[in-house]
Design a protein around this nucleic acid. Sequence first.
DNA 1: GCTGGCCTCGACAACGATGTCATAACCGAG
DNA 2: CTCGGTTATGACATCGTTGTCGAGGCCAGC
Lengths: 350, 350
Amino acid sequence: MTTMSDRYQPPLSPTRPTMRHVAALAGVGIKTVSRVINDEAGVSEATRQKVLDAIAQLNYQLDVTAGSLRRAGRRTLSVGLLLPSVSNPFSAEIHRAMEDALGARGIAVFAASLDDDPKREQAIIAAFLGRRVDGLVLTPIAKNQAYMIPEHSRNLPMVFIDREPVGVEADAVVTDNAVGAGKAAAHLLMHGHTKLAYLGDRTDIQTARERRRGFLEEVGGAGIPTSALPVIDNLHDEEAARQAALELLSSEDPPTAIFSSQNLVTFGTMRALKELGLHKRVALVGFDDFTLADMMDPGVTVIAQHPERIGVKSAERLLARIDGDDQPPRTYIVPSELIQRGSGEIRPPA
Amino acid sequence: MTTMSDRYQPPLSPTRPTMRHVAALAGVGIKTVSRVINDEAGVSEATRQKVLDAIAQLNYQLDVTAGSLRRAGRRTLSVGLLLPSVSNPFSAEIHRAMEDALGARGIAVFAASLDDDPKREQAIIAAFLGRRVDGLVLTPIAKNQAYMIPEHSRNLPMVFIDREPVGVEADAVVTDNAVGAGKAAAHLLMHGHTKLAYLGDRTDIQTARERRRGFLEEVGGAGIPTSALPVIDNLHDEEAARQAALELLSSEDPPTAIFSSQNLVTFGTMRALKELGLHKRVALVGFDDFTLADMMDPGVTVIAQHPERIGVKSAERLLARIDGDDQPPRTYIVPSELIQRGSGEIRPPA
DNA sequence: GCTGGCCTCGACAACGATGTCATAACCGAG
DNA sequence: CTCGGTTATGACATCGTTGTCGAGGCCAGC
């Protein structure tokens, strides 16, 4: 009687089996193995089975990287994703959405954090290109991306997220920053505020500038002079924002409503408000949603971005470019959404 | 006068330059180009310069994947990282720490999310192996990892994080779950509680079981019978936890202190406490720290894990294995830390 | 029985790099 | 001036795969 253990058992070798081994075991040529693996036509069912058996027996696995060397189009089935930081919740959501969309196509994602460092941006892009990624999705930091022109002209698929590219033309997927900030302003105005203040991030970040512009334009459009409106920029961490808010709120003529242009700035402002016991008296709208915002006291009203949608859209555009779409680059806008939770609906003192 | 524009400008071709192109332009053999790029000895300074010039002129970049085909050891300078989800803050912190540690060695990271799906675990591992990663760091989901034995016996460097492997022997880096949960219990006991409750995650997750064990052992060790202590398991999302907590707190003899074994469970419990107006009367200690925990009312006392340290340690172990360390596998423990913020220091009613 | 066409299948080159090894050039010693 | 040894360099095979192309087998049609 023939048992499993009678069958040829390959020695557990420290080297991975290759197509040659499979071919030898199945008694066919390596090209036939390749055909079976890639589901190409022109292999008889009997041969196919023999090959599949050999593959199973040897635990063979295709070497994608070796294949990409020869394959038409040189696809490596991997892409690079450059984010401010993989540990930033907003970025992480985008990452997740992209991973899902690309994973469905068998594409693996290299992820990396930029930390607002233009040198890192270039180094990481170089590292990814050296691994022959099929495309790049990135949040640019550097003042411009002209250094990518060689790749760009080689038609490397690229999608910029959150910020638009400078110096090269490529697809971009962004939040309607100015519109969203405008909505925040309108919301506060509608609740009767006239003494507003703006607390913002570094002005070398495009989105920060957009948010400021949108906010101020909306306020100005409502007939409120913006020249006297406190605008504090370049708050890049929680502590800086807290200090700025403390100072602002302790000033002679403090605002009755604050718009903070980014998560960490919102957190710092919340702390300052609480320290001064003003958290239920001064209105606050923050740009960007965050976990437990509804559990704060009061709940924090925000302009929520939709990172998953940004991720999905970016993946979609990247895949389209990889598949050869050569329409002129476009910027896709993902609308933001105002979520009322209490802090933004506080009215000014009578 | 010779200007830059007099220099030979390569036509912007749609194909990437290779070593052959560089060699041709520099008037040397491709092996010499390889030597220059890899900083091998035996190239005269004059030749080196010629090659470097040609590289700069053509904007040449080494193809790491092609090189790895032939290179000794076949290093691809990439590793795979499998996490519950790249968008989970705890995972994202680990990811970030690993990226930094590995990036310093020129190693790129493929990241993927498992979503507690054993099938996904296997599929992603296969995808990464097909890309010939130099190593794997993973949070296992599947009941056991015996399916990785072929890779394991080929000495593929592997490090398990957060949970220990079953079915294969490999390094692991974990939090002292039982000890941490014990600390939570001791803390609550010390504050005078005798009516405790445990709200936990799915029991098929090793860490959840460890935390439960640690908690109950500490309570039992203090002479309090654990048989009557409410233990509610398998709470895997915020809403389930909220419901469970509501029910528990509305029962005839409600606990005066609750230990929640995971972030989402903590959030659900917080909601329930707030809804019932008990947030300042019932003590709460949660396992795992979270953003703004100190901004809650009251601040939430937690057993904080140290994801950055876990990430750093995992990277260190992975690199050691890649570099040939063949000591017997070990489990490394990263201690947790109790952070007092108010909710855990609430005393039971007199 | 021969021809032509289809279907299977494998030999071989090539992808871009690196390891091996041979060779040319050069040097100082005898 | 020759010889042995060192240094610089390139030809070539090779890594694991896929594209090209030709060979052989089989069958229908004449």
